[in-house]
Design a protein around this nucleic acid. Structure first.
Lengths: 146, 146
DNA sequence: CCTCCATCGTTGACAACCTCCACGATACCG
DNA sequence: CGGTATCGTGGAGGTTGTCAACGATGGAGG
């Protein structure tokens, strides 16, 4: 069918996706700048804090949708600040488990407050049901694109 | 209340947004590579084709959420390939209107097919109602973040 | 008319990011 | 034991994001 609609581009889901994502990332970055963090680093830190047994860098790359070589640099920066540490895995000596330090967990807690506050403006106006629905749709898009 | 939920990061809308966006942009970029286009350029081209009277570069920057300096380079590349042209505005001589050429419109048509086909995998599984809802939510996020 | 200030496009510099390729070390399979 | 695959790492090259200037033009107020 595809009869006349509004602006072709502002109807394109891919465009709307990247534009909204850019805005949110921008806001989060400025909020995290006070802690010397960028969103990428913050994401790695959260994942490290979240995994009691540590996370493989390969797992980080898969979850974040990044190239493994990027993860190396991110973990380097976090480790250089003592927020995470690399521990060799006993099960598979190729992998190095990334674990959050106490300093890392502490920073994550305070940074999380600022991060959520920063996206309160764009995302806060969504109803709870809408947020759940959006979460579901975005994860489905991600898995379908894998 | 904020009681226990799933993975903290995979519940973060900002993260899900940027991850899904990255996947879609990646797919679109590889699809457009055959035409020598990237998503940015393609977006500019679409907007230029869409505006019969031409678009100001400032308008392009606003709609795309980009820095004006980026728009300059994008239009340069498109103009260098004869896909768009810059015409001085009579109303405001500071601005230069970006207009699509016939070649630009022709390329846009064929590129659009490949672009939509590329995102068919991640976005095709969404029902029409879901897509409308997603469009609405994403535009609201964008305007709220402005 | 003239002055002050805002806006548009443009340029340049710099950091961040993405993509790809290659390598050593280790694991796994036969 | 030999061949193949995976993990982390490094490097190269291109793309994007951010910011600060600058000249040219427009617009408002005296």
């Amino acid at each position: 069918m595809e009869v006349l609609m509004g602006h072709p581009l502002t109807d394109d889901l891919g465009f709307l996706l990247s534009r909204a994502s850019g805005a949110v990332v921008r806001a989060t970055n400025t909020a995290l700048a006070g802690h010397g963090l960028r969103v990428r680093q913050y994401s790695v830190l959260v994942l490290a804090c979240d995994a009691a047994e540590g996370v493989t860098q390969r797992e980080l790359a898969d979850v974040l949708g990044l190239d493994p070589s990027q993860v190396v640099l991110l973990v380097d920066e976090l480790a250089g600040r003592g927020l995470v540490e690399r521990r060799p895995s006993e099960a598979d000596r190729r992998t190095r488990l990334v674990l959050a330090t106490d300093a890392g967990r502490a920073l994550r807690d305070v940074a999380e407050r600022d991060a959520t506050a920063a996206v309160e403006a764009p995302l806060g106006l969504l109803a709870d049901a809408e947020r759940d629905r959006l979460r579901d749709v975005l994860t489905r898009i991600w898995t379908a694109a894998g």
